[in-house]
Design a protein around this nucleic acid. Structure first.
Length: 573
RNA sequence: GUCCCAGUAGCUCAGUGGAUAGAGCGACCGCCUCCUAAGCGGUAGGCCACGGGUUCAACUCCCGUCUGGGACACCA
């Protein structure tokens, strides 16, 4: 792909055209205030956000500033718009890029780009390549992104899989928006569940029944057999040591298995954080002291509490139980403080729906630590995933003993389809994955729809090369791209940086998937209406080169979108 | 009881306060002697659950009601 792309990785890139336009609008407003054509006391917005009109008759960009300023200015909105129009048309920095400014409806300002402005979009895509779409919306922000954090006591299941896909994609999106992102997996390696896990494996190794409240999947017997083969002496140890030995060996194997499965799913972490480590080197005591300084710790009934009700929680939470044991909440508190002390500005938690009750108390921890819960901590709740095959819900997993695992899902539909489908829905709504749809190769399977568009373009470009048709940064010819489909396609390509920034700020990677689908659809329609390569023995013209170049830019943007989702962009299908 | 999420086309769902509310599926009718038909075009299908409020403008924000789903621990 992009074989003919010229290698001029030259000088400073101009700001995206949409930013140039919105800056010009702001200049126009400032001028109008200076000349008192707008009242001098008028407070102007700090930034003009442009909309992309749904209706193409309304131009490439639209703004409603005149509507919102009309009332404070005590003017008719259309008069404000008229004023803006005059100044914009006179603005030397922007007027070359604009072909028309129309005032519509109650006072919308509709801006149509000149061909040259459209050409600059294609040029930016080709020169920025893999970086096109990346921006600085979150530059300077250090983010800790914690997701999955499954207990190391069994295989990863469907719920974890949703987070694996969405969390990883969110990490990619946040990075693309300029944030410094650290992906972290919190390992619950202490507490009752670990003991039960060890006891279950040991029982299996002895050929005994697994405890009632223990772990029952087939994998427990597998682990027991593995450990017994490696360390037959574990069974002869004194009981307490024997439990510990099985627990620790099982933990190591299970964690390694989760890491293997996740790596295969293209989900990687920077830090695997051990809960146990929170209690080493007096770290917990340090955390408790910090919370005490803020004045929200108290003692009652022999237990140590955090007064989370000071910050909207419905009840206070116990950190140290009256028997001296640490409650799970102690770990939560210390873990949050650990993240902040490690230098993260924003801590994002991705939790399952069964943890939604945790949102208030986690936010309260931040507040109790003296932080701003609306900025320093962000808790995302993911709803349930169901999986359907042959019209019936899949529930049983041979391995886990309960629900279907990440690995089984991948075996059924592949990494690309699994990742894409899990990411394309907002996480706060329950979703259903239909295995039969994910295996189908039609419009109803969005991942193939998008990938197909990419492969289709690659095929066209291969043919272009065979025919000796040049395409690339020196073959943009924006003045030739006047078909409605071409304009629509360029407009969609120009949107990508804003989509990425929005997805990052809202923590909603599904927006990238939806954008990719829309872009793919627009390309397919362009392809149906606009012949890219010469027909038969037709001579090659600059229009063919211009269209091939547009194809190349489109492939770039589709590939960049899919890359943000961790999904491959195949060149052949 | 308290809290969270949802209610948009027959179905599954998008929709960052803007103009005529969208997509896929399903239904019906069409399009390949030449660039990937895993594609494209057209028709049909909507009191955006309901009632108030804020706003120049509400599917979108606020309050309330109804319906559905989920969560409540000195468990982890």
């Amino acid at each position: 792909m992009d074989t003919a792309e010229s290698n001029n990785s030259t000088a400073g890139q101009a700001a995206p055209i949409s930013e140039q336009v919105s800056a010009a609008i702001l200049r126009a407003l400032t001028l109008a205030v200076a000349t008192q054509e707008l009242p001098s006391g008028l407070t102007l917005p700090s930034q003009i956000t442009l909309e992309r009109p749904k209706n193409r008759d309304h131009g490439d960009y639209a703004t409603s500033v005149s509507l919102s300023l009309a009332k404070p200015a005590g003017m008719n909105p259309r008069a404000v718009a008229e004023l803006l129009r005059t100044y914009l048309l006179a603005d030397v920095e922007i007027k070359e890029s604009i072909s028309a400014i129309d005032i519509a409806g109650p006072g919308f300002l509709n801006i149509t780009l000149a061909r040259a402005g459209q050409g600059s979009i294609i040029s930016a895509i080709l020169s920025e390549g893999e970086k096109y779409g990346h921006g600085s919306a979150l530059a300077g922000t250090s983010i800790n992104l914690e997701f999955i954090s499954a207990n190391p006591t069994g295989p990863l299941h469907l719920g974890h899989t949703r987070w694996a896909a969405v969390g990883d994609a969110l990490g990619r999106v946040l990075s693309a928006a300029g944030a410094k992102v650290t992906r972290e997996f919190y390992i619950n390696d202490r507490g009752n569940q670990m003991e039960l896990f060890g006891a279950s494996i040991r029982a299996a190794a002895q050929g005994l029944a697994v405890p009632e409240d223990g772990y029952h999947g087939e994998y427990i017997t597998d682990l027991a057999a593995l450990i017994k083969a490696e360390h037959p002496e574990f069974l002869d140890l004194p009981e307490a040591q024997s439990f510990d030995a099985f627990r620790d060996a099982g933990y190591a194997l299970q964690l390694a298995d989760q890491q293997r499965v996740l790596a295969n799913f293209r989900t990687n972490f920077d830090i695997w954080f051990s809960e146990k480590s929170l209690y080493e080197n007096d770290f917990f005591k340090h955390c408790l002291d910090r919370l005490k300084e803020q004045g929200h710790v108290f003692e009652d009934g022999g237990a140590i509490w955090l007064r989370t009700t000071d910050f909207g929680d419905d009840k206070d939470r116990v950190m140290i139980k009256s028997d001296g044991a640490f409650a799970y909440f102690a770990s939560d508190s210390a873990y949050y403080i650990s993240k902040r002390e490690r230098g993260f500005d924003v801590c994002i938690y991705m939790l399952g729906a069964d943890h939604h009750g945790y949102v208030h108390r986690l936010k309260a921890i931040a507040a109790c630590a003296g932080d701003d819960p609306s900025y320093n901590i962000d808790v995302l709740i993911g709803q349930m995933v169901k999986i359907l095959e042959n019209g019936e819900e899949l529930k049983l997993s041979k391995r886990a003993g309960t629900i279907i695992t990440l690995e089984e899902l991948v075996e059924k539909v592949g990494v690309d389809a699994a990742r894409y489908t899990l990411i394309r829905y907002p996480v706060d709504t329950p979703m259903v994955m239909d295995v039969d749809v994910l295996r189908s190769r039609t419009n109803e399977n969005p991942v193939y729809y998008v990938q197909y568009a990419h492969a289709r373009i690659c095929a066209v470009l291969r043919n272009a090369t065979d025919l000796g048709i040049a395409y690339g940064a020196d073959q943009i010819h924006p003045e030739l791209l006047e078909n409605e489909r071409e304009r629509e396609l360029i407009g969609a390509l120009a949107e990508f940086p804003r989509v990425v920034a929005g997805a990052a700020e809202l923590r909603e990677p599904h927006r990238i998937a939806r954008y990719a689908e829309e872009l793919a659809g627009i390309y397919h329609r362009f392809y149906a209406d606009c012949r890219v390569l010469p027909l038969g023995d037709e001579p090659a013209t600059e229009l063919h080169s211009a269209r091939a170049t547009l194809c190349s830019a489109t492939a770039r943007v589709i590939a960049n979108s899919l890359a943000l989702l961790g999904v491959t962009a195949p060149e052949k299908m």
